[in-house]
């Protein structure tokens, strides 16, 4: 573990110009070394997206369960809340004896962190559906299942997407620690030479870009899927 954090240098200082030797921000060096970030970047994308998708599937199932059995909301918030507050580095190490080093360990931890946000947003979204809308839907002959899928869930979509946006951006950030679990990702590159500005800024920038990209995609999905949200009195 100490070895992991120990100062490593990823460049041949002697062979490089003054910028690199001085730990500066060197566009030339970045352009020459792009390919070293490619694999960690894709690992990062993989970890973030899989964690959010799996987290969403679990949170969604839990939310539907709690929607029918209201008393479950409290306990589920409690448990996912505890998961959320566990220090992530500790979890990465604690899980290793059970699941070993690698993507699985990282994914379990990252997924666990998305649950609270996603569950709470889905439940809130469902709760905020106006009761008269549900009453009217039942009154004109929607079955309970149709009320859920055709009225409640579509109307909960703004909150659900808001939850996904928060979950996606925080997961991209947390995934920088996944290399502690041996799952790679951009965090590994950042820590590989943490004194070298070119490296830290570029690897960090890729994380930021990924977070923004996911956020913009979700926002675009919201605008595309929810045209009624933009409809206001004219």
């Amino acid at each position: 573990m100490i070895a992991l954090l120990a100062q490593v240098e990823i460049r041949d200082r002697a062979a490089e110009d003054g910028c690199v030797a001085g730990n500066g921000f060197c566009p030339g060096w970045i352009a020459d070394n792009l390919d070293r970030y490619l694999e960690p970047f894709w690992q990062h994308v993989y970890l973030s997206i899989v964690a959010v998708v799996v987290g969403f599937a679990i949170a969604f199932a839990l939310a539907l369960l709690a929607h029918e059995r209201r008393w479950l909301v409290g306990p589920i918030i409690g448990i996912t809340g505890v998961l959320y507050t566990l220090p992530s580095i500790a979890v990465f190490f604690l899980l290793q004896p059970i699941t070993g080093r690698g993507a699985l360990t990282a994914l379990i931890a990252l997924t666990a962190y998305t649950l609270l946000i996603l569950f709470r947003n889905i439940v809130t979204g469902l709760e905020n559906v106006p009761s008269e809308t549900k009453d009217a839907a039942r009154g004109i002959g929607y079955t309970d299942r149709q009320v859920l899928w055709k009225v409640e869930l579509p109307l909960a979509m703004p909150e659900i997407i808001a939850g996904l946006r928060i979950a996606a951006t925080t997961t991209v950030g947390l995934a920088t620690l996944a290399f502690f679990a041996g799952a790679g990702g951009l965090g590994g590159e950042i820590f590989a030479d943490i004194t070298f500005k070119s490296n830290v800024v570029f690897a960090g920038g890729l994380c930021l870009a990924l977070a923004i990209l996911l956020d913009v995609m979700l926002l675009a999905a919201q605008r595309l899927l929810l045209p009624w949200r933009r409809a206001v009195a004219t």
């Binding site: 106006p130 008269e132 809308t133 549900k134 009453d135 009217a136 839907a137 009154g139 009225v151 579509p154 109307l155 979509m157 929810l226 009624w228």
Partner: peptide, 10 residues
């Protein structure tokens, strides 16, 4: 009903 209960998303 009084509150009408139209579906806002439709």
């Amino acid at each position: 009903i009084q509150q009408i209960g139209l579906f806002p998303h439709q």
